[in-house]
């Protein structure tokens, strides 16, 4: 049995999702808020086991949402278009099959592959969700894909 210092994520999510969506809509508008909502709670989910107590959970998740909103604003400014660096030979796999396909990959690689190819998130967002750098996220996705190719050619 593990000692649990925080409520089950289900309760945490149910309690704060409305407020998080409200904040994101005010900052980003209805459309962009939906992507940011998903990213906020994926980021929270990733960091959740490292929380040491259940105080300030509301402030914590609103802080994450604010950072996600700031990142989204930055991205909205015109910059160099993103060029995908990994060509998937047989076209982009249907995301519904990705969970099964990537079963058995190391967790970070699996998350990176699913978020990149299944949910089409850019590397900076994946990095945000994983709590790493965009470069590390790119490498994780890339080595995940290599591993999958190795597996499928066996």
């Amino acid at each position: 049995m593990q000692r649990v210092n925080v409520p089950p994520f289900e309760s945490f999510y149910a309690e704060h999702r409305g407020e998080v969506l409200g904040l994101l809509r005010r900052r980003l508008g209805t459309q962009a808020a939906e992507d940011a909502f998903q990213e906020t709670f994926l980021r929270a989910l990733h960091a959740y086991p490292r929380l040491e107590h259940d105080r300030h959970l509301r402030a914590w998740v609103l802080t994450i949402a604010s950072r996600v909103a700031i990142d989204a604003h930055r991205r909205a400014r015109p910059a160099g278009g993103e060029v995908p660096e990994i060509a998937v030979e047989d076209g982009r796999p249907d995301w519904a099959g990705l969970g099964e396909l990537t079963d058995g990959l190391p967790p970070t690689e699996r998350a990176a592959v699913v978020l990149r190819y299944g949910f089409d998130l850019p590397y900076d967002r994946i990095a945000a969700a994983l709590g790493s750098s965009p470069e590390a996220a790119r490498q994780a996705a890339s080595s995940g894909v290599r591993r999958l190719r190795g597996r499928s050619s066996q």
Partner: peptide
């Protein structure tokens, strides 16, 4: 602010698909 069932469903899908549970 009410989270639509579609948005809610997508988050739950993503969380499971990413192997984060």
């Amino acid at each position: 602010m009410t989270v639509t069932s579609d948005l809610d469903r997508r988050f739950r899908e993503a969380a499971a698909a990413a192997g984060l549970l």
